[in-house]
Amino acid sequence: MVLYTHHLPQWKQDEVEQIKRLSGEYKLTGLVDLHGIPASQLQQMRRDLRGTAVIKMTRNTLIEHAFAQLGGDISKTSEYVDGQSAMIYTNENPFKLYKKLQETMTKMIAKPGDVAPEDVVVPKGPTAFPPGPIVGTLQQAGIPAAIEGGKVVIRETKTVAKAGDVISEKLADVLAKLDIKTIDVGLNLQVAYYEGTFFEPSTLAIDETEFMNKLTLAGKQAFNLSVNAAIPTKTTAEAIIGKAVREAKNLAVEAAIYEKDVIELIIGRAQRESVTVKALTE
């Protein structure tokens, strides 16, 4: 659906024009979700990204207006607008941007109704609480607690919520008391449009260690294939020649072909065989 801006107030038209201008100035145009980020942390994240990316906060409807006017493939960016979206612009490739945004993530205390992004584990050990009602509060939340040596102690490590579970009010209160921060807060990349292609988080979330291990394995397998199939390359030519020389020497020794380079090997083999035969006949 085409959206028109001639009826918009001037400040909104200016916002739309700025979104369009920035989309033309940077190689990457993306959307990030700001939901749940406190203002102080958002400001820190913007400082962390300074020199790398520009964040443009505006209304979702104005984002949609801007992309409708831009047209072409980039206009499909508006299909990803959801929640409290903001624009992000950078000249970095989307993989580097995604990694940088992950590095700006921080942990916060869960609120009632939050969804646990991963298992929530309360470790065993002493707490800072003196004996009191806190013991009952912990036990009601499923955390085995007792009083030992005048302190409240958690007797065993306990998983109090699984990834995807909704945090209850009771559990949120206990986690806050224990200062256990479980919720990831940061700029969640919704989509990135870069050089004519859309990149979603599922594509950008790469385990770099696993990726490098796979690259290393692929390199070794390609090297071995080149050597064993005798396909010479700049990297494998020396290894192929070395393999050929070893195989030629082995053949000469096995066939007792008396050549200058293998005569000592043939004599050595004959000597070892004679020693073996002598040992068997004694």
Rank of each mutant, 00 (worst) to 15 (best):
87 M>H: 00
55 I>S: 09
94 P>I: 02
170 K>N: 09
180 I>L: 13
172 A>G: 03
275 V>M: 02
278 K>T: 09
8 L>V: 03
59 R>G: 14
158 K>Y: 11
190 Q>W: 04
267 I>F: 12
114 D>Y: 14
70 L>Y: 07
52 T>H: 07
38 P>Q: 14
51 G>A: 10
1 M>S: 11
255 A>M: 10
98 Y>A: 02
116 A>V: 00
212 M>N: 10
241 I>E: 06
106 T>C: 03
51 G>L: 04
53 A>D: 07
23 S>Y: 04
35 H>D: 06
134 I>Y: 12
14 D>L: 11
41 Q>F: 13
242 G>T: 06
37 I>Q: 01
275 V>Y: 02
86 A>C: 09
67 F>C: 03
46 R>I: 15
15 E>Q: 10
138 L>S: 02
96 K>D: 12
272 R>I: 04
242 G>R: 12
20 K>G: 09
149 G>I: 14
251 L>C: 04
96 K>R: 09
149 G>N: 14
248 A>M: 11
245 V>K: 06
216 T>V: 12
157 T>W: 14
180 I>G: 09
206 I>D: 01
175 L>N: 04
155 R>K: 15
61 T>R: 07
93 N>W: 10
182 T>V: 14
259 E>T: 14
3 L>S: 11
167 I>Q: 03
43 Q>L: 00
214 K>G: 07
149 G>K: 13
108 M>R: 07
67 F>Q: 02
125 G>M: 07
84 Q>V: 13
55 I>M: 12
266 I>S: 05
16 V>Q: 04
178 L>Q: 06
